[in-house]
């Protein structure tokens, strides 16, 4: 179940548009009236603001004194490709690192756990709940817990390494390990949701094909690879898309666990946007970042619609 507001906006892609026979009654005014409250909220807080972002991105905006703002045209956009640190390109790569980790790692991990936990009795049911629980916990609360887990001197993570005779790691304080550490936390938090999506997918696929494959002498792995997984294709596409979009937007764990550091190693586009807008108050530049982020997300969304349409043919 989606638990962030971002996901709420995303999940519906799961639901197919059904075809209904024509209804004869004239419902125009009523229908418009019924959709109006929702559309009004979207208009005021989503649609107009999106356009407004574009306007702000053309200004050297002074939030302290708007009268001192200057129109600079594409100035903020050319700055995106300038020498600011962390550069737009570097943050893009950091976002890509995180997103790839979440999408590839998350999909593989949740698929594996789903296969492990499918069907089965009360014990496996309890494990399903255990895997899902982290997903309903607030990101603020559990990010704090994981900062403590990753404490190099007294934390659980190094205690586990110690148990296996390995030496401790600086986790969040080393630019090489900070992102893997945030990824570990984020996977812990997000995987429960995608596991359940895969379980839902596994519960409705046909078992007969698998039987047939086994009759033909396929082993478990071949059965999974050639028979089960292909049937989960729409579910996988959904999981990949939702993970991509929510990873691009991830912010809270970076804010609390690393503050974008060390050495910008965890400054993703979302974090950079926040930092430029609400720490350094380079509002116009941040708005330009937002426009780019919007275009990237919209492209992913459209791509997903495309894939969906072609896969359902």
């Amino acid at each position: 179940m989606a638990t962030t507001q971002a996901e709420q906006r995303v999940s519906p892609r799961a639901v197919q548009v059904g075809r209904r026979p024509a209804r004869r009654a004239r419902n125009g005014p009523l229908a418009v009236g019924l959709t109006l409250p929702a559309l009004l909220i979207f208009a005021v807080f989503t649609i107009l603001p999106t356009a407004y972002t574009f306007v702000i991105s053309l200004f050297d905006w002074n939030p302290l004194n708007v009268a001192q703002s200057r129109f600079i045209g594409a100035g903020n956009y050319t700055k995106l490709f300038g020498h600011a640190t962390p550069s737009f390109a570097a943050s893009g790569l950091t976002s890509l690192y995180f997103t790839a980790g979440m999408v590839i790692g998350g999909t593989a991990l949740s698929l594996a756990i789903a296969v492990l936990l499918q069907r089965g009795g009360a014990l496996l049911g309890a494990v399903r709940v255990a895997v899902f629980v982290p997903h309903v916990t607030p990101l603020v609360a559990t990010s704090i817990v994981w900062v403590w887990i990753f404490n190099p001197q007294f934390g659980l993570a190094n205690a586990v390494l110690h148990l296996f005779g390995l030496s401790g790691v600086d986790w969040l304080d080393n630019s090489a390990t900070a992102m893997p550490a945030v990824l570990a936390y984020s996977l812990w938090h997000e995987v429960g949701f995608t596991v359940v999506i895969f379980l839902g997918g596994l519960s409705v696929i046909s078992g007969e094909l698998g039987e047939a494959a086994r009759v033909d002498g396929a082993n478990r792995w071949q059965e999974f690879w050639y028979v089960t997984w292909p049937q989960l294709r729409p579910v996988t596409v959904f999981v990949v898309t939702i993970s991509t979009i929510s990873s691009l937007q991830a912010f809270t764990q970076f804010f609390l666990m690393t503050g974008g550091g060390p050495v910008h190693a965890t400054t993703t586009l979302s974090f950079l946007l926040y930092q430029e807008a609400f720490v350094f108050f380079h509002t116009g530049y941040a708005a330009a970042l937002a426009v780019v982020l919007f275009v990237v997300t919209a492209l992913f969304t459209l791509l997903q619609f495309r894939t969906r349409r072609s896969s359902s043919r």
Binding site: V10, R13, V17, N27, F42, T46, I56, L273, Y274, T301
Partner: peptide
């Protein structure tokens, strides 16, 4: 209900999904 403009309005709702929350902050 079936009404004129249903597809158009529905497309608007779809378009809303494309806007990430981060973009709306500013």
């Amino acid at each position: 209900l079936r009404f004129r403009g249903r597809t158009a309005l529905f497309t608007v709702v779809l378009a809303v999904m494309m806007v990430p929350q981060t973009v709306l902050l500013i």
